[in-house]
Structure formats: structure tokens, C-alpha cells
């Protein structure tokens, strides 16, 4: 080994390298390279803060707008409200029956979710666990439904729901579904069904056959085995499908606004209520903001309650038990 080689080796082993002159950035970079854990942690915090700011800032600003008195709306700051007027949160209920709009949306979303989960469970069982001819064709045709833009279905459905149907007369006053919750959750359930079928099918197919067999020998029917064994074991999937359906239906505007005349007693949804604060001569931005915040609460609560299941549902399949 030559003397030069030895000198190089010695240089590589020295860590402080005192004779190199460095700027702040270089020094920082060197520190990160010698200590990668710190770099990862720093990146993690930067990324987390970025996502938190981009997702939460709109809420924050909504709150700022809601708290600003109406006559000072033009002076809302980026970070501070233009005043302090919590009364807006009361006013939304006095000026309009906004609670009724929320109730409408909530009820429609709950009913749609229940229908979707029930039907999708049965379909998911069939697609995920049974073998039969033409299964893939059938599955594909179910999925194709969800590829259409909802607007494609609107015109025929609207015509249908506006017609007086005699057999419905005992149920509905005038025999037409227009201005009833049925006109909203029937098409919405159908539209969001394929997604849930797909989610549940994936989960149900992973439950070992032996468990279903054991349940059936112990005394359940196939249906009993589905609801006593397969569904509980697929809880994350069911929660995910349920919450996704609930949120989409709750937030849905297109069908919900067109299938009713917009009055709360005609089952107009929450979004319709928010838009009602937009009067003929002025737009009550503070009330719209307050209403939006109130409207988001049911979903927020639901997600917080179900979050553990949803997280494991969305990441399931990564690790199979």
C-alpha cells in the first residue's frame, strides 16, 4: 500500500474534518447525513404540518367568517375574524329551520346506508364466496353502473318520480315520489351500491370457508352465518363501506336538490338549506359559514367514532391474519 493510499484512508476515518470551511446549509446537510433519523423525523413533521394546514385551514377560515358580524364581512382578515359574533350559530336556526334540513339529510343518509349495507352484504357474499357461472360478467355489469355520471340517470328518474303511480297512492298522498325522501335515497342507494359491494366482496372473500362451515354445522343458515360470523369478522370493511356511503349521501347535492322543491318539509337536504342563506339582495356569508360548520358536525362525529375501524379497513389486505 502506497503512502498516498494510507493518507486517503486516514482522511476517510476522520469525522470532524476540521480544515473544510462550510456554510450554514452545508453544515446542516452534513449533520443530517451523519444522523439520518433526525432527517426522517424532520421530514415527517414538515409533511404532517403541511397536510394539516391544507386540510384544516379552510375550516379555520370558515370559523373566522362565521364569527364576523354581517356588516363587517368585507374586513375579515386572513387569520383574524372581523369581529366577534357567535350569534350567527343561533341565527341560522331562527331565520330558517336549518335543523330540519340537517335532519332530512341525516335521515336520508342513514336510510341509504342501511339499505346499501344490507344489499351490498348479500351481493358481497355472493360475489365473494360463491362460485357460479357468469359471475364476472354480472360483477362487471354491477360496477359499470357506477361509471356513469349520475346526471345520466337524472332525466328518466325525474320523469318517473314526477309521475303519479297508482299503486303508490295508498302510501303517498298524490301517488308521486317527488318531494319525498324516497325520491332521494332510492337512486342514491343504487348509485353508491357498487362501491360498497366491491369493498364488502373483498372482505367477505377473505374469511376462511371453514368458519362458515363451522357456523352452518352449529346450526345457522347461510344467511345466519353471514350475519353472525362473516359480517362481524369483516367489521372494518363494513364500517368503511358504511361511512363512505353515509358521507357521500349526506353531502350529495345534485339529486337531492332536483328531486325536491327545496322546502324543508319537502325533504330538501342540508346543502339546499345552506344555499337558502343566499338571499335575493344579499349573500349572508357569515350564516352560510356557520351553517356549513354545523352541517359537518354529524359526519365529523361519525368518523371519529368509527375511525379505528376505518383505518384498519382502508389498510386491510396489507397484512393477512
Amino acid at each position: 500500500m502506497s503512502e498516498k493510499d494510507q493518507a486517503d484512508l486516514a482522511a476517510m476515518e476522520r469525522t470532524d474534518e476540521p480544515d473544510l470551511d462550510r456554510g450554514i446549509v452545508e453544515a446542516w446537510a452534513a449533520k443530517m447525513i451523519s444522523n439520518p433519523d433526525r432527517a426522517y423525523r424532520a421530514t415527517f413533521y414538515v409533511a404532517t404540518i403541511f397536510f394539516l394546514v391544507t386540510t384544516l385551514f379552510p375550516f379555520y377560515w370558515l370559523l373566522m367568517v362565521a364569527l364576523t358580524p354581517r356588516n363587517r364581512l368585507s374586513s375579515v382578515g386572513v387569520l383574524t375574524p372581523g369581529g366577534f359574533n357567535p350569534g350567527a350559530f343561533v341565527e341560522i336556526f331562527t331565520r330558517l329551520p336549518f335543523h330540519r334540513y340537517i335532519f332530512n339529510s341525516f335521515l336520508i343518509a342513514v336510510v341509504a346506508t342501511v339499505i346499501v349495507l344490507l344489499v351490498a352484504s348479500l351481493a358481497g357474499y355472493v360475489f365473494g364466496r360463491l362460485r357460479f357461472r357468469a359471475k364476472n360478467v354480472l360483477l362487471l355489469s354491477v360496477l359499470v353502473t357506477s361509471f356513469f355520471p349520475p346526471a345520466a340517470f337524472f332525466v328518466p328518474l325525474n320523469r318517473l318520480f314526477n309521475r303519479n303511480i297508482d299503486i303508490l297512492r295508498p302510501l303517498m298522498q298524490d301517488g308521486s315520489l317527488y318531494n319525498t325522501p324516497y325520491a332521494i335515497f332510492i337512486p342514491l342507494s343504487a348509485l353508491y351500491l357498487p362501491l360498497s359491494i366491491f369493498i364488502l366482496m373483498t372482505f367477505y372473500s377473505q374469511i376462511p370457508d371453514g368458519l362458515e362451515d363451522a357456523a352452518r354445522v352449529e346450526g345457522t343458515t347461510r344467511l345466519g352465518a353471514l350475519f353472525r360470523i362473516i359480517v362481524p369478522l369483516s367489521a372494518p370493511g363494513v364500517a368503511t363501506a358504511g361511512v363512505l356511503t353515509f358521507i357521500t349521501v349526506y353531502n350529495e347535492y345534485f339529486f337531492s336538490s332536483l328531486m325536491t322543491d327545496g322546502r324543508p318539509q319537502s325533504w330538501a337536504p342540508m346543502l339546499e338549506g345552506i344555499l337558502r342563506f343566499q338571499g335575493e339582495f344579499e349573500v349572508l356569508f357569515n350564516l352560510m359559514a356557520a351553517a356549513s360548520i354545523v352541517a359537518v358536525l354529524p359526519v365529523a362525529i361519525l368518523v371519529i367514532v368509527a375511525q379505528e375501524k376505518i383505518v384498519s379497513g382502508l389498510t386491510a389486505g396489507a397484512v393477512k391474519e
Partner: peptide
């Protein structure tokens, strides 16, 4: 009117 012990045991995990 039967009961069965399965080769793969098949206890209900929940």
C-alpha cells in the same frame, strides 16, 4: 343432527 370437529379447527375468532 350432526356436529363436526374440523381439520382446520375453525373456532370463531371474535
Amino acid at each position: 343432527g350432526i356436529s363436526m370437529v374440523f381439520q382446520n379447527i375453525a373456532l370463531f375468532p371474535h
